[in-house]
Each structure stands twice: as C-alpha cells, then as structure tokens.
C-alpha cells in the first residue's frame, strides 16, 4: 500500500507501529522523498502480510496516527490449504475439476501431484489451493465436495483448527 504522512521526525516509525500492532509482517518499505508533490508530506510504499480480517483495523489505526492511505494494492492469495483426492481422476476430467476452483476468481489450484499406479485402479492426487481468505478456501472445498460427489471421488480434507 502507498501511505502519505507528515514529513516530521518519528513519523515513519509511528506509521509502521500499527502494522505490528495488528500482527502484520512488513516485507518491504520503499521511501522516496523527492516524489512527493507537497513539500510537507512524505510518500512511503509498504509491502506487508496481514492476518485475515485485520485490514480495516489497520486503516483505522493509520487514521488515528494522521497517516493517510493513498492506495491499497492488490490483495494476493495468501491462504493456502492442501487436500488429497482419490478416484478415477483422469477419466473424470481432472482439468475440469481444477477449473471449477479456478473459475471462482478468489481461489486457485497452485499445485497438483498425481500418482497413477495402474490403468483402471484409482489414482491419488494432492492438490494445493490458494485463496484470498479462509472463507474463500472453505467455499473452494465446498465446490470440490460437490464435484467429488458427482464424479465419485474421495476427498480428504485437512483437519483445520476451529
């Protein structure tokens, strides 16, 4: 995200503090003094990882510190979950199965390992889904469950913490 703050000593630290306060992880801070249009303010770009659902809290804390957020970049897919599928995966159109997840736009299959022991015997696959939030991951698993029922596949879901 791109932040705008007063060009005074201590302001950068004040702007970064709320990030750790909400449990975020700063990946990069880019500080370019000369690009700021107004002389009294400072533009800073920050790349960070945040636990789910904390963005609103962070924005609120920034406001309290007098830091205005100029732009929020694209949220990357940060939530990852892994499942195993067993059954006749190729004969039931594996690319269609994957496509059902990718089509959601909020979750996608990022990794797939397939073991096919012999013709006619069931194959096994490990499938990794990345999504924007945990809720989206749950939705993706729900879609996969529906697909599994139609295609007679066994889905082994992860045991998640509640």
């Amino acid at each position: 995200m791109k932040l705008e703050m007063k060009d005074q000593p201590g302001q950068l630290v004040a702007a970064l503090k709320p990030i750790s306060a909400v449990g975020g992880n700063i990946i990069a801070v880019i500080h370019q003094r000369e690009t700021s249009a107004a002389a009294e303010t400072l533009d800073v770009q920050i790349v960070l990882e945040l636990p789910e659902g904390r963005l609103d809290t962070l924005l609120e804390l920034f406001r309290e510190q007098g830091v205005s957020v100029v732009r929020i970049g694209e949220e990357r897919l940060l939530y990852e979950c892994t499942l195993i599928m067993i059954g006749h995966l190729m004969h039931t159109d594996l690319s269609d199965t994957v496509d059902q997840i990718d089509r959601t736009g909020s979750a996608e299959v990022t990794e797939l390992s397939l073991v096919m022991p012999a013709i006619d015997s069931p194959s096994s696959a490990r499938i990794t889904i990345r999504s924007t939030t945990r809720a989206e991951a749950k939705k993706a698993i729900g879609i996969l469950r529906g697909v599994a029922e139609r295609k007679d596949l066994l889905i082994i879901e992860p045991l998640e913490d509640a």
Binding site: T82, I84, I86, V115, P117, S124, I156
Partner: peptide
C-alpha cells in the same frame, strides 16, 4: 478407499 499413494502424498508434506 484409501490408497498407499494418498498416504505417501500426505507424508511428502509432513502430514
């Protein structure tokens, strides 16, 4: 319906 392959795939990820 579980296969040894499925257990191996799990083990590859320390699961």
């Amino acid at each position: 319906l579980l296969t040894p392959d499925a257990l191996q795939l799990a083990e590859d990820q320390d699961c």
